[in-house]
Each structure stands twice: as C-alpha cells, then as structure tokens.
Design a protein around this nucleic acid. Structure first.
Lengths: 244, 244
DNA sequence: CTGTTAAGGTCTACGGCGTTGGCATAAGGG
DNA sequence: CCCTTATGCCAACGCCGTAGACCTTAACAG
C-alpha cells in the first residue's frame, strides 16, 4: 500500500487507470457524491467507487488515507459550495440569514452525503473560510468579540445540526420508499384521542408541519435575539461610553 | 432464519442461551449500550453483541429484524430515560426547558449511541409519549393549536439536532484521543492574522466556547420568543375576544 | 534520445461484517 | 407425558475496508 498520501498540490505524474480515466481528488469526490445519491448513504464503498472510476479500489488510498478522510473531503466540498452560492450585501442580518440558508441548502442538496458529514468538523480550508466569514460579518456589524463568538457558535452549530437532522429525514425518504412511507401519517395521525389527546387534536397540523424544516423559524428567532442584543449594547454604550 | 420477529409482549418460552443467559429485548438493548460506550459508535456489531450476550449472532434476529431495528430500539430507550428523568411542575416554560435539557442530556450520556440514533424518528411508544407531553404543555399553557404545533416542531427538532451534533463531537473526542485531539486548539487557534483576522482576533474566546454546547442558549431564545408570542396573543384576545 | 527513479497504478489476500436457511432441542399447553 | 413450535445454534454467502507486494510508465537529468 501507499507509504503516504501525497497532497493534491504536489502531484506530478498523473497516470491514467487501466480504463483510461485520469484521477484527481476532485474527480473522486464528485464521483462519490454521485454514488451517494444513487446508492444511498451506506452505498459508498471503496470497491464501488473504484468501479465507478474505472480504478482498483486500493488506488483510492493513494488519494485519501481511508474512507474517513474521503468523507471529510466530501463535507468540505459541500461547505465550499454553500460559500460559492452566497454573496454579501453588507447588511449583517440579511447576510447571515442567507449564509445559514445556503449552508443548509447545500447539505440538503445531497442528503445522503450530508448524513455522513454534517456532524463532523473537518478543519479544512473552505470550512474555515465559512467560519471566518461569519465572524467577520458579526464583528463588522458592531458586536463585541464575546457576543460575536457566542452568536457565531450558536449560528454555525444550528446550521450544521439542522442540516444533519433534515438531511437524515430526506435521505430516509429517498432510500426507503417502501416500509417507512411517512411516519407522521402512518403512525402519529392514527393515535386514538383517549391515549394521546394532544397529538390527536393537532394531527392535521402536525402532518403538514413535520414535513417541513424547522430551521428557518429557529434561525430567525436566533437572529432576532441577536439584533435585540446589538441594540441594547449600542444604547448602553451611548449612555455610558466609558464602560467596557 | 426466523420467519418473523415475535413481539416482546408475546414471548412465552425463554430458553437460556448455551452460556446460560436468558435473553430479552431489554437485556439486548442495554448490552448494546454498554458495547457502544466501550467500543465506539462503529463498534456495535452483531457478532460482538452476540459474544457479549453469550449467544450466537443470528439469535439477535429473533428479537430484531436487523441491526437497524435494534438501533431504533436504542434510541427509544434513550428517549424513555429522558422522560423518566423529568418531572412536571406546571410552569410551562420551566417544564419545557427542563424537558429539552433532559433529552439532550440523556443522549449525551451515551454519545456513541446518540450518534447512531439521534437523527432518526423511531415512532415507538416512549418517543410518542415525549411528543404528547410537549404538545400537552404547550396547549395547557394557552397556545393555540397552530402555534403549539409550530413551537413543538422547533422544540423537538432543536433538541434532537443538537443532541446529534454535540454527541458527535463528544464521541469523536472519546474515540480518537490520538490524531484528532482538539480541532479548535490544534487548527483554528493557529491561523495567522493576515489570512484569517477574525478567527485570530477571537481565538482565545473560541477555544473555550466551542467546547461547550450552544444548545442551552438557543433553547432559551426559542422559549423567550414563544413567551413573547403567547403574551401578544393573550393581549390580542383580551382586546378583541370575538376574534378567532 | 536514453536511462533512472519513484509515483501511481494493479493484484492478491486477510479478517470481519450482516444476514440467511436449515436444524436441534426443550418449554410449556393439552 | 406428549406434541408443537418457539427459540437457540451452526454453517455459509457475498459483501466490506484496507494492507503489502508488485508492475509500469511519466518525468526528468544527462
């Protein structure tokens, strides 16, 4: 096996595989994304990916130390796409909202991949770029460092957590068209009022609501609360500018 | 193989295993929880679980249709424990807060198990009981059905999403004591100010903050927003009681 | 243009996995 | 006490990740 994985930037010799394809990290990651979509979140295997690329499975280990590292690269790709899809306007609240939704949407565009990656911090460049951007927006808006960090933390974790949760729900629906159907209509909507009065009374509302994501609502409450905090701080500073 | 899995309630003949243990769903689930803690979130295998129980791996299929169903039973167990740890006081906001934290804590008590289960709806009895409880608290507090359902949705998804996210972080720390160490001190805290000014400026705050959960903060913003909505609705109703 | 070197492919193999079907046996109702 | 059948065990299938040895050819020096 490979002594060590050579970073993409330092690759010199690109030998085509037996079947003629020339490999690269990008090609592998994109093929992996396609396979996840086609075969479900547990359908990404070294052998299958190798076959799809026309390469021996073990070749992948020249590019990634293991499937785990490949998984992190996939997450990085999704995070990068979110950032690409986003443009700053200078209005902090609108920008944060758009960025949060972009991250969420980017993951949901590949639910099977998101399931594998959304709850992992990769520490790779494009993920760091997102973090830097968020902190920049907050500090630029006038938040103090402590507030900025607190809001940043809530913001990014909220986006990732909901990305993972919603992607999981989506992936299950995509994969198990049979059997699972829809838990809310099949199970919850049929509970008798005697044993579960509250669910029974609101079943008609639940069935609709639970098929949407709660993310936008929660995101907005977070941003509203941040806005209030900013206003309060500004007033306090204006009143007593000598305070820290 | 078994024609069909027989529900726990209908089991009559409890034949001991070759090594003397008498199986039950509960024993299997609890042993699985222990194995997850000891061997990490990917360390739960039919063979290992069988060995730990002193039974043949295939015996498990008499109790669960597959590892997937066992996983759902584990999630159900965690959700049930959360409900057991919680007691109602009648004050809706405090009750919801306590219940949310109980769910979060119950999952974080078994991070490796939580990783596998937190983003899955099981549709099993004790999970349904939690849902019924939440809706009951909200409707009892005076929220209209539409509001109650909206808040319920945000509340439960928030709890589960953060349980999954925080458990993932915890599980990685438990499992990969080597190699990963702490992404925040190892990677982020060392970024140069030229390329990442905002991260560099706040690194000292980030390192502390990112090792905590953002859940309590976000939960409180959600509850505050709900409280405001309830007050607004009450006023509107008092002013114009004839309104729907 | 040729020779050398090692990057980057392929091949083979190992141990472990989930799951299945067939079989043996003993629990418990009659 | 007998019969039925639930429930356990065994053996086997086709996957999996990945390690190590090996081969081939791209890239560069001369």
């Amino acid at each position: 096996m490979a002594k060590k994985v050579i970073p993409e930037a330092e690759r010199r010799r690109r030998r085509p595989t037996r079947r003629g394809t020339v490999l690269s990290e990008q090609l592998i990651v994109r093929t992996a994304l396609r396979m996840l979509r086609e075969h479900g979140s547990s359908g990404l295997t070294a052998r299958r990916l190798g076959a799809a690329l026309g390469a021996d499975p073990s070749t992948l280990y020249r590019y990634f130390a293991g499937l785990d590292e490949l998984t992190r690269a996939i997450g990085e790709e999704l995070m990068g796409r979110a950032l690409d899809d986003w443009t700053a306007t200078g209005e902090w609240r609108a920008d944060l909202r758009a960025l949060g939704l972009a991250v969420h949407a980017s993951y949901l565009a590949h639910p099977q991949a998101a399931v594998l990656t959304a709850s992992r911090v990769t520490g790779r460049p494009r993920e760091i770029a997102v973090d830097e951007t968020i902190l920049g927006i907050l500090r630029g808006a006038g938040f103090g460092d402590a507030d900025a960090v607190g809001i940043y933390h809530a913001f990014i974790d909220l986006a990732l957590a909901f990305a993972a949760l919603d992607a999981g729900a989506l992936a299950i629906k995509d994969e198990a068209r049979e059997a699972d159907e829809d838990m809310w209509t099949s199970t919850y909507a049929r509970l008798p009022a005697e044993t579960h009065p509250h669910i029974a009374a609101t079943a008609h509302l639940l069935v609709h609501r639970m098929n949407l994501s709660a993310y936008p609502v929660v995101l907005d409450t977070l941003l509203t609360s941040a806005e209030a905090r900013l206003a309060a701080t500004a007033t306090a500073t204006a009143t007593a500018p000598q305070a820290v």
